[in-house]
């Protein structure tokens, strides 16, 4: 169980540019929840994920994972339990290392990176099997530098790396936004497959409302750093894009449908 209690985050505090990014977000996630998060630009979606991962500090509030308050843990420590996939395909993998070296690093997430051999022979077989399930032919390219891969391949690899050691929470920050539609679809089905197989608890930020409705068992809409809609189960199933738009208009009539808000 993951609990977010009254999370507040202000950027540029005390200056004229002060922005209240999160104004008291409270959220209880059950084990196995797959939550999609939507909201207009500046609603606080990415900030929420960054605060959870620890790359952005919080002003006040608590983040509790399995009864352990991790609010003050540094990012590298939190990554033992929280893994993430970024919007930028280049961020999740290391281009100058080979595929197997990247996987070896991910295979040690949360453990010490000591003086043992980086890529063990016994690991290579496991890596091959795991890469094969991506269906991208990467299993025969273990020694290739990741920098040679395409954005979609890198994103698929990042997903694999994020789930190799089972995380307590998987954070997906618009992880298909930078990909072409076909690749995005592939990466999305892989995401669904991995989450389903491992019964992962996941948070996925997206700008695509159709996607937000199709995927996951719960949907959250953020606006102005607050949760303005939280539906799950049958209620979510029954919703259509029009209902979401209506919700959007309800809180603020104008400028909701920005150019990044895709209807398809």
């Amino acid at each position: 169980m993951i609990e977010i209690k009254d999370l507040v985050k202000t950027f540029h505090r005390g200056s004229v540019n002060e922005v209240l990014a999160l104004s008291g977000i409270t959220l209880k996630m059950r084990k196995g929840d797959f939550i999609t998060i939507i909201g207009s630009n500046g609603a606080g979606k990415s900030t929420l994920l960054n605060c959870l991962a620890g790359s952005t500090g919080i002003d006040s509030g608590h983040i509790v994972i399995d009864e352990e308050d991790v609010s003050r843990w540094p990012e590298h420590r939190r990554s033992t339990w929280i893994s993430r996939v970024f919007q930028d395909p280049l961020l999740g993998t290391c281009g100058s290392l080979s595929i197997e070296q990247n996987l070896a690093l991910a295979n040690r997430r949360g453990r010490s990176h000591g003086l043992g051999r980086g890529v063990k022979r016994s690991d290579q077989e496991i890596f091959k099997k795991q890469l094969a399930q991506l269906g991208l032919g990467l299993e025969s390219r273990l020694k290739d530098k990741v920098g040679l891969l395409s954005g979609g391949q890198r994103q698929a690899l990042t997903l694999l790396m994020a789930t190799m050691i089972r995380p307590k929470v998987l954070l997906l920050d618009e992880h298909t936004a930078a990909l072409d539609p076909k690749t995005a679809h592939q990466v999305l089905s892989l995401t669904q497959k991995l989450i389903k197989e491992q019964h992962l608890t996941a948070l996925m930020v997206t700008h695509n409302m159709q996607q937000a409705l199709q995927l996951g068992n719960r949907l959250i809409m953020l606006h102005g750093g607050r949760v303005i809609l939280d539906v799950s189960g049958a209620e979510k199933q029954a919703m259509a894009v029009e209902d979401l738009l209506e919700q959007f208009y309800k809180v603020r009539g104008e400028e909701f449908v920005s150019d990044r808000m895709l209807l398809v």
Partner: peptide, 20 residues
């Protein structure tokens, strides 16, 4: 493993931090 972490620290700090 430490050496790989060293190389990744130089190349992509966000990635290696995310790996703990």
């Amino acid at each position: 493993a430490f050496g790989l972490a060293m190389q990744a620290t130089g190349a992509n700090r966000q990635m290696i931090t995310s790996q703990g």
